[in-house]
Design a binder for these strands. Structure first.
Length: 310
RNA sequence: GCUCAGGUAGCUCAGUCGGUAGAGCAGGGGACUGAAAAUCCCCGUGUCGGGAGUUCAAUUCUCUCCCUGAGCA
Protein backbone atom coordinates (compact mmCIF):
# COMPACT_ATOMS: atom_id res chain seq x y z
CA UNK A 1 0.00 0.00 0.00
CA UNK A 2 1.19 3.45 -0.94
CA UNK A 3 -0.56 5.57 1.71
CA UNK A 4 1.21 7.31 4.53
CA UNK A 5 2.69 4.95 7.11
CA UNK A 6 0.78 4.52 10.38
CA UNK A 7 1.76 6.13 13.66
CA UNK A 8 -0.08 5.76 16.94
CA UNK A 9 0.05 8.70 19.36
CA UNK A 10 -0.56 7.80 22.99
CA UNK A 11 -0.86 10.93 25.08
CA UNK A 12 -2.22 12.27 28.36
CA UNK A 13 -1.09 13.80 31.63
CA UNK A 14 1.72 12.30 33.65
CA UNK A 15 1.06 9.21 35.73
CA UNK A 16 -1.95 7.81 33.89
CA UNK A 17 -0.32 4.59 32.69
CA UNK A 18 0.42 5.37 29.06
CA UNK A 19 3.38 3.00 28.93
CA UNK A 20 1.24 0.05 30.06
CA UNK A 21 -1.29 0.80 27.33
CA UNK A 22 1.46 0.97 24.73
CA UNK A 23 2.77 -2.42 25.79
CA UNK A 24 -0.73 -3.86 25.57
CA UNK A 25 -0.82 -2.72 21.94
CA UNK A 26 2.61 -4.21 21.29
CA UNK A 27 1.38 -7.60 22.45
CA UNK A 28 -1.22 -7.58 19.67
CA UNK A 29 0.91 -6.31 16.79
CA UNK A 30 4.65 -5.80 16.34
CA UNK A 31 5.27 -2.30 17.66
CA UNK A 32 7.98 -0.03 19.05
CA UNK A 33 7.54 2.76 21.54
CA UNK A 34 8.96 6.19 20.64
CA UNK A 35 9.19 8.71 23.46
CA UNK A 36 7.83 12.25 23.13
CA UNK A 37 8.52 13.41 26.65
CA UNK A 38 11.02 16.22 27.07
CA UNK A 39 12.43 14.91 30.40
CA UNK A 40 12.53 11.17 29.82
CA UNK A 41 15.36 11.71 27.36
CA UNK A 42 17.82 12.31 30.21
CA UNK A 43 19.98 9.31 31.10
CA UNK A 44 20.76 10.49 34.64
CA UNK A 45 17.11 10.45 35.79
CA UNK A 46 15.42 7.19 34.79
CA UNK A 47 13.51 6.88 38.08
CA UNK A 48 12.62 10.50 38.73
CA UNK A 49 11.30 11.09 35.21
CA UNK A 50 9.42 7.75 35.26
CA UNK A 51 11.11 6.22 32.28
CA UNK A 52 9.94 2.70 31.37
CA UNK A 53 11.69 0.12 33.56
CA UNK A 54 13.68 -2.91 32.39
CA UNK A 55 10.65 -5.16 32.30
CA UNK A 56 8.66 -2.73 30.21
CA UNK A 57 11.55 -2.15 27.85
CA UNK A 58 11.94 -5.90 27.41
CA UNK A 59 8.35 -6.17 26.21
CA UNK A 60 9.08 -4.24 23.01
CA UNK A 61 11.71 -1.85 21.64
CA UNK A 62 11.79 1.61 23.22
CA UNK A 63 13.39 4.56 21.43
CA UNK A 64 14.48 8.06 22.51
CA UNK A 65 14.57 7.28 26.22
CA UNK A 66 17.48 8.09 28.53
CA UNK A 67 20.10 8.96 25.93
CA UNK A 68 20.99 12.56 26.82
CA UNK A 69 23.37 13.71 29.58
CA UNK A 70 22.11 16.28 32.08
CA UNK A 71 24.19 19.13 30.71
CA UNK A 72 22.80 18.75 27.16
CA UNK A 73 19.89 20.83 25.93
CA UNK A 74 16.78 19.33 24.38
CA UNK A 75 14.43 21.29 22.15
CA UNK A 76 11.28 20.86 20.13
CA UNK A 77 13.19 21.10 16.84
CA UNK A 78 15.74 18.57 17.96
CA UNK A 79 12.98 16.25 19.04
CA UNK A 80 11.28 16.48 15.64
CA UNK A 81 14.50 15.55 13.90
CA UNK A 82 15.15 12.59 16.21
CA UNK A 83 11.55 11.41 16.15
CA UNK A 84 11.28 11.44 12.35
CA UNK A 85 14.43 9.37 12.22
CA UNK A 86 13.26 6.95 14.93
CA UNK A 87 9.84 6.51 13.33
CA UNK A 88 11.56 5.78 10.01
CA UNK A 89 13.64 3.07 11.62
CA UNK A 90 10.60 1.47 13.23
CA UNK A 91 8.75 1.42 9.91
CA UNK A 92 11.81 0.01 8.18
CA UNK A 93 11.62 -2.95 10.53
CA UNK A 94 7.99 -3.48 9.71
CA UNK A 95 6.78 -2.43 13.14
CA UNK A 96 4.15 0.02 14.30
CA UNK A 97 5.53 3.17 15.98
CA UNK A 98 3.66 4.18 19.13
CA UNK A 99 4.54 7.69 20.22
CA UNK A 100 4.17 7.85 23.98
CA UNK A 101 4.62 10.97 26.04
CA UNK A 102 3.24 14.13 27.56
CA UNK A 103 5.03 17.05 25.98
CA UNK A 104 2.27 18.61 23.91
CA UNK A 105 4.59 21.01 22.12
CA UNK A 106 6.82 18.21 20.89
CA UNK A 107 3.94 16.20 19.49
CA UNK A 108 2.40 19.23 17.84
CA UNK A 109 5.74 20.23 16.33
CA UNK A 110 6.14 16.75 14.89
CA UNK A 111 2.61 16.48 13.51
CA UNK A 112 2.14 20.02 12.24
CA UNK A 113 5.68 21.09 11.56
CA UNK A 114 7.83 23.77 13.12
CA UNK A 115 9.27 26.91 11.53
CA UNK A 116 12.73 26.16 10.08
CA UNK A 117 14.51 28.88 12.02
CA UNK A 118 18.27 28.36 11.85
CA UNK A 119 20.34 27.67 14.94
CA UNK A 120 20.99 30.90 16.85
CA UNK A 121 24.72 31.65 17.31
CA UNK A 122 25.69 31.28 20.97
CA UNK A 123 27.05 34.80 21.29
CA UNK A 124 23.76 36.33 20.13
CA UNK A 125 21.80 34.11 22.43
CA UNK A 126 24.05 34.99 25.35
CA UNK A 127 23.79 38.70 24.62
CA UNK A 128 20.00 38.52 24.69
CA UNK A 129 20.01 36.49 27.91
CA UNK A 130 22.38 38.96 29.54
CA UNK A 131 20.12 41.83 28.60
CA UNK A 132 16.98 40.15 29.82
CA UNK A 133 18.75 39.27 33.05
CA UNK A 134 19.70 42.87 33.62
CA UNK A 135 16.70 44.74 32.26
CA UNK A 136 13.93 42.17 32.50
CA UNK A 137 11.74 41.12 29.60
CA UNK A 138 9.85 44.41 29.39
CA UNK A 139 12.51 46.39 27.56
CA UNK A 140 12.82 43.66 24.94
CA UNK A 141 9.06 43.66 24.70
CA UNK A 142 9.04 47.37 23.99
CA UNK A 143 11.31 46.75 21.03
CA UNK A 144 9.22 43.82 19.91
CA UNK A 145 6.16 46.05 19.78
CA UNK A 146 8.01 48.13 17.23
CA UNK A 147 9.72 45.33 15.25
CA UNK A 148 6.97 42.73 15.31
CA UNK A 149 3.69 44.15 16.65
CA UNK A 150 1.78 41.06 15.59
CA UNK A 151 3.85 38.75 17.75
CA UNK A 152 3.91 41.32 20.56
CA UNK A 153 0.12 41.14 20.57
CA UNK A 154 0.30 37.39 21.19
CA UNK A 155 2.89 37.23 23.97
CA UNK A 156 3.00 38.98 27.34
CA UNK A 157 5.55 41.64 28.39
CA UNK A 158 6.49 39.51 31.42
CA UNK A 159 7.17 36.36 29.43
CA UNK A 160 10.93 36.02 29.74
CA UNK A 161 11.38 33.07 27.46
CA UNK A 162 9.25 34.17 24.54
CA UNK A 163 10.63 37.71 24.62
CA UNK A 164 14.15 36.34 24.62
CA UNK A 165 13.34 33.98 21.79
CA UNK A 166 11.74 36.69 19.63
CA UNK A 167 14.73 38.97 20.21
CA UNK A 168 17.38 36.39 19.40
CA UNK A 169 15.58 35.25 16.25
CA UNK A 170 15.26 38.84 15.02
CA UNK A 171 18.87 39.62 15.85
CA UNK A 172 20.25 36.46 14.27
CA UNK A 173 18.08 36.20 11.17
CA UNK A 174 16.86 39.74 10.56
CA UNK A 175 13.37 38.29 10.28
CA UNK A 176 10.56 38.49 12.82
CA UNK A 177 8.84 35.59 14.52
CA UNK A 178 5.70 36.47 12.60
CA UNK A 179 7.63 36.25 9.31
CA UNK A 180 9.01 32.85 10.22
CA UNK A 181 5.62 31.58 11.31
CA UNK A 182 3.91 32.79 8.14
CA UNK A 183 6.56 32.08 5.54
CA UNK A 184 7.70 28.71 6.74
CA UNK A 185 6.23 25.81 4.83
CA UNK A 186 4.32 23.97 7.51
CA UNK A 187 5.01 20.41 6.55
CA UNK A 188 2.13 18.29 7.73
CA UNK A 189 3.23 15.00 9.23
CA UNK A 190 3.96 12.43 6.54
CA UNK A 191 2.15 9.89 8.69
CA UNK A 192 -1.31 8.49 9.05
CA UNK A 193 -1.98 9.06 12.76
CA UNK A 194 -4.47 7.96 15.35
CA UNK A 195 -4.49 9.82 18.65
CA UNK A 196 -5.36 7.92 21.80
CA UNK A 197 -5.51 9.70 25.16
CA UNK A 198 -5.44 8.37 28.71
CA UNK A 199 -7.17 10.64 31.17
CA UNK A 200 -8.74 10.95 34.60
CA UNK A 201 -9.60 14.21 36.29
CA UNK A 202 -7.08 15.90 38.53
CA UNK A 203 -8.71 15.05 41.83
CA UNK A 204 -8.54 11.36 41.00
CA UNK A 205 -5.06 11.66 39.50
CA UNK A 206 -3.46 13.57 42.40
CA UNK A 207 -3.35 10.68 44.90
CA UNK A 208 -1.86 8.44 42.22
CA UNK A 209 0.86 11.00 41.60
CA UNK A 210 1.68 11.15 45.32
CA UNK A 211 1.87 7.35 45.48
CA UNK A 212 4.10 7.27 42.46
CA UNK A 213 6.52 9.69 44.11
CA UNK A 214 6.68 7.42 47.18
CA UNK A 215 7.45 4.55 44.85
CA UNK A 216 10.17 6.59 43.13
CA UNK A 217 11.81 7.37 46.46
CA UNK A 218 11.63 3.69 47.38
CA UNK A 219 13.20 2.88 44.03
CA UNK A 220 16.20 5.10 44.74
CA UNK A 221 15.21 8.54 43.46
CA UNK A 222 17.35 10.31 46.06
CA UNK A 223 20.44 8.25 45.23
CA UNK A 224 19.76 8.91 41.56
CA UNK A 225 19.80 12.66 42.17
CA UNK A 226 22.97 12.37 44.24
CA UNK A 227 24.71 10.47 41.46
CA UNK A 228 23.56 12.95 38.84
CA UNK A 229 24.92 15.81 40.95
CA UNK A 230 28.34 14.16 41.03
CA UNK A 231 28.32 13.90 37.25
CA UNK A 232 26.82 17.33 36.64
CA UNK A 233 27.18 19.77 39.54
CA UNK A 234 25.45 22.63 37.73
CA UNK A 235 21.93 23.35 39.00
CA UNK A 236 21.20 25.36 35.85
CA UNK A 237 21.97 22.46 33.53
CA UNK A 238 18.98 21.60 31.33
CA UNK A 239 18.43 18.14 32.80
CA UNK A 240 18.01 19.48 36.34
CA UNK A 241 14.84 21.34 35.45
CA UNK A 242 12.71 18.21 35.64
CA UNK A 243 10.13 18.08 38.42
CA UNK A 244 11.54 16.04 41.28
CA UNK A 245 15.14 16.63 40.17
CA UNK A 246 15.19 20.23 41.34
CA UNK A 247 13.35 19.49 44.59
CA UNK A 248 15.64 16.61 45.54
CA UNK A 249 18.69 18.67 44.66
CA UNK A 250 17.48 21.41 46.99
CA UNK A 251 17.31 18.84 49.76
CA UNK A 252 20.73 17.35 48.92
CA UNK A 253 22.31 20.77 49.05
CA UNK A 254 20.86 21.28 52.51
CA UNK A 255 18.13 23.75 51.68
CA UNK A 256 15.12 21.77 52.88
CA UNK A 257 14.19 18.55 54.64
CA UNK A 258 13.29 15.50 52.60
CA UNK A 259 9.66 15.84 53.65
CA UNK A 260 9.55 19.41 52.43
CA UNK A 261 11.22 18.46 49.18
CA UNK A 262 8.72 15.70 48.71
CA UNK A 263 5.79 17.99 49.42
CA UNK A 264 7.07 20.43 46.80
CA UNK A 265 7.59 17.61 44.36
CA UNK A 266 4.01 16.38 44.79
CA UNK A 267 2.67 19.91 44.46
CA UNK A 268 4.65 20.70 41.33
CA UNK A 269 3.72 17.41 39.72
CA UNK A 270 0.06 18.13 40.21
CA UNK A 271 0.41 21.63 38.77
CA UNK A 272 2.24 20.16 35.80
CA UNK A 273 -0.48 17.58 35.20
CA UNK A 274 -2.98 20.42 35.18
CA UNK A 275 -1.02 22.26 32.47
CA UNK A 276 -0.86 19.10 30.42
CA UNK A 277 -4.60 18.63 30.74
CA UNK A 278 -5.12 22.21 29.57
CA UNK A 279 -2.93 21.58 26.55
CA UNK A 280 -4.48 18.28 25.51
CA UNK A 281 -8.01 19.53 26.08
CA UNK A 282 -7.83 21.56 22.91
CA UNK A 283 -5.87 19.06 20.86
CA UNK A 284 -8.28 17.71 18.28
CA UNK A 285 -9.27 14.19 17.33
CA UNK A 286 -8.25 12.34 20.49
CA UNK A 287 -10.08 9.19 21.51
CA UNK A 288 -10.00 9.10 25.31
CA UNK A 289 -9.71 6.12 27.63
CA UNK A 290 -9.46 5.73 31.40
CA UNK A 291 -6.24 4.48 33.04
CA UNK A 292 -6.05 0.69 33.02
CA UNK A 293 -8.22 0.21 29.94
CA UNK A 294 -5.18 -1.14 28.16
CA UNK A 295 -6.99 -3.85 26.21
CA UNK A 296 -9.64 -1.38 25.08
CA UNK A 297 -6.85 0.87 23.82
CA UNK A 298 -5.29 -2.09 22.02
CA UNK A 299 -8.65 -3.04 20.46
CA UNK A 300 -9.12 0.53 19.31
CA UNK A 301 -5.68 0.72 17.72
CA UNK A 302 -6.04 -2.69 16.05
CA UNK A 303 -9.42 -1.74 14.60
CA UNK A 304 -7.92 1.46 13.26
CA UNK A 305 -5.06 -0.47 11.65
CA UNK A 306 -7.47 -2.90 9.99
CA UNK A 307 -9.61 -0.03 8.77
CA UNK A 308 -6.58 1.44 7.01
CA UNK A 309 -5.88 -1.76 5.14
CA UNK A 310 -9.51 -2.31 4.12
C1' G B 1 -2.24 29.91 88.51
C1' C B 2 0.45 34.60 86.76
C1' U B 3 2.76 37.56 82.71
C1' C B 4 3.42 38.45 77.69
C1' A B 5 2.38 37.49 72.51
C1' G B 6 -1.15 35.78 69.19
C1' G B 7 -6.27 34.08 67.20
C1' U B 8 -8.08 37.83 59.90
C1' A B 9 -9.04 33.45 53.01
C1' G B 10 -7.61 26.10 52.69
C1' C B 11 -2.16 27.61 54.71
C1' U B 12 1.53 31.64 56.25
C1' C B 13 0.68 36.43 57.42
C1' A B 14 -0.29 42.01 56.37
C1' G B 15 -3.79 45.84 57.48
C1' U B 16 -7.74 49.06 59.13
C1' C B 17 -4.87 56.38 63.81
C1' G B 18 -13.11 53.27 64.29
C1' G B 19 -16.38 53.73 58.16
C1' U B 20 -17.15 45.46 57.28
C1' A B 21 -10.12 43.98 54.47
C1' G B 22 -5.34 42.19 50.88
C1' A B 23 -0.58 39.79 49.67
C1' G B 24 2.26 35.24 48.92
C1' C B 25 1.37 30.09 48.63
C1' A B 26 -2.45 26.40 47.69
C1' G B 27 -6.83 25.90 44.42
C1' G B 28 -9.60 27.03 39.61
C1' G B 29 -9.46 28.73 34.40
C1' G B 30 -6.37 29.96 30.19
C1' A B 31 -2.15 30.85 26.69
C1' C B 32 1.64 28.17 24.24
C1' U B 33 6.21 27.54 17.04
C1' G B 34 14.05 25.41 19.10
C1' A B 35 14.16 26.16 27.66
C1' A B 36 7.76 23.28 27.28
C1' A B 37 8.33 18.76 33.65
C1' A B 38 9.72 25.47 30.81
C1' U B 39 7.59 30.42 30.63
C1' C B 40 3.49 33.45 31.32
C1' C B 41 -1.77 35.61 31.97
C1' C B 42 -6.67 35.98 34.55
C1' C B 43 -9.77 34.68 39.04
C1' G B 44 -9.87 36.93 46.40
C1' U B 45 -16.99 37.82 50.92
C1' G B 46 -13.87 35.87 54.60
C1' U B 47 -19.54 34.99 61.29
C1' C B 48 -11.50 39.53 60.84
C1' G B 49 -12.14 33.38 67.80
C1' G B 50 -17.38 33.71 71.03
C1' G B 51 -20.15 37.23 73.90
C1' A B 52 -21.04 42.00 75.97
C1' G B 53 -19.93 47.38 76.33
C1' U B 54 -18.71 52.45 74.31
C1' U B 55 -20.17 54.70 69.50
C1' C B 56 -24.28 57.07 64.31
C1' A B 57 -20.76 53.03 63.07
C1' A B 58 -16.38 47.91 66.06
C1' U B 59 -12.53 43.29 62.70
C1' U B 60 -10.12 47.89 64.88
C1' C B 61 -11.17 50.77 71.45
C1' U B 62 -12.83 48.51 76.54
C1' C B 63 -14.37 44.26 79.45
C1' U B 64 -15.10 39.09 79.66
C1' C B 65 -14.82 34.07 78.08
C1' C B 66 -12.52 30.29 74.92
C1' C B 67 -8.19 28.49 72.16
C1' U B 68 -2.74 28.45 70.77
C1' G B 69 2.44 29.63 71.74
C1' A B 70 6.48 31.46 74.88
C1' G B 71 8.16 32.71 79.72
C1' C B 72 7.47 32.64 85.15
C1' A B 73 5.67 29.82 89.09
Amino acid sequence: MIGKPPVVCLLGPTGTGKTAAAIAVSRRTPASVVNFDSRQVYCDFPVITAQPDAEERAACPHLLYGFLPTQEKMSAAMFVKLAVQAIGEVHARGRLPILVGGTGLYLRSLLRGIAPIPEIPVDIRQRVLDRIGKEGPQSLYAELQHDDPEYAAIIHPNDTQRNARAAEVFLATGKTMTWWHQNSAHTPAPFDTVKVGVFIDLDALAPRLAERIDAMLAAGALEEARGAWERCPDPDAPGWSGIGCAELLEHLRGGVSLDEAKAQWVKNTRAYAKRQITWFRKEEGIDWFAPGQDEAVADHVLRWLEGRDG
